[in-house]
């Protein structure tokens, strides 16, 4: 008798893969806006998977940062550029074939690794539950230096973006 979380896993995994497929290879529309919308749906399904894995904080961050901030940025740039011209072009058959071969090769490698791997000794006992508090503690003790470096990285990205998108000075 399957329980609700099991059914939820299969549903969310199916949604994630379906929306991901529609994002990269939508047979009905080649419009980047459609791709962006399906990417939002993929990310939200994945946040559901994170909840199933009891990573509540990361699920919230996933929705806020990816589905919120990053996708708004994407849509903003799509609207900024002229996308009408893009839909007329045909797919490059050779690139599609070579890409398909490469993808199949990577998929084969992944399947082989999964088949050959010894199953994880089921870590019984308590799961790391309600993980926001321990996660925060870990972030500000053991991972404090990477955390601070990350803030510098964000500053560098911000300055870089301003510099890139500024009109050239005479």
């Amino acid at each position: 008798m399957p329980t609700l979380p099991d059914l939820l896993f299969y549903a969310l995994a199916g949604f994630t893969l379906l929306f991901g497929f529609l994002c990269v290879a939508n047979p009905f529309s080649r419009n980047p806006v459609t791709s962006a919308m399906f990417l939002v749906l993929t990310i939200i399904s994945m946040a559901g998977l994170f909840v199933l894995l009891q990573a509540f904080f990361l699920a919230a961050v996933q929705v806020l940062v990816y589905a919120g901030a990053v996708m708004v940025l994407f849509l903003f740039v799509i609207m900024l550029l002229d996308i009408k011209e893009e839909e007329r072009r045909r797919l490059n058959k050779a690139a599609l074939g070579i890409g398909g071969v490469a993808v199949l090769a990577i998929a084969g490698l992944l399947v082989r690794a999964l088949v050959q791997a010894t199953p994880l000794a089921s870590a019984a006992g308590q799961r790391a539950e309600g993980s926001t508090k321990p996660l925060g503690r870990l972030l500000f003790t053991e991972y404090l230096l990477p955390f601070e470096i990350l803030s510098v990285l964000l500053l560098v990205a911000m300055v870089g973006v301003i510099l890139l998108s500024k009109k050239e000075m005479k």
């Binding site: 962006a36 893009e86 070579i98 490469a102 993808v103």
Partner: peptide, 14 residues
């Protein structure tokens, strides 16, 4: 693999 297929096969930068 889906993402890789998109990177290799799609031609729109975005």
């Amino acid at each position: 693999c889906l993402g890789l297929l998109g990177v290799l096969a799609r031609r729109n930068l975005l």
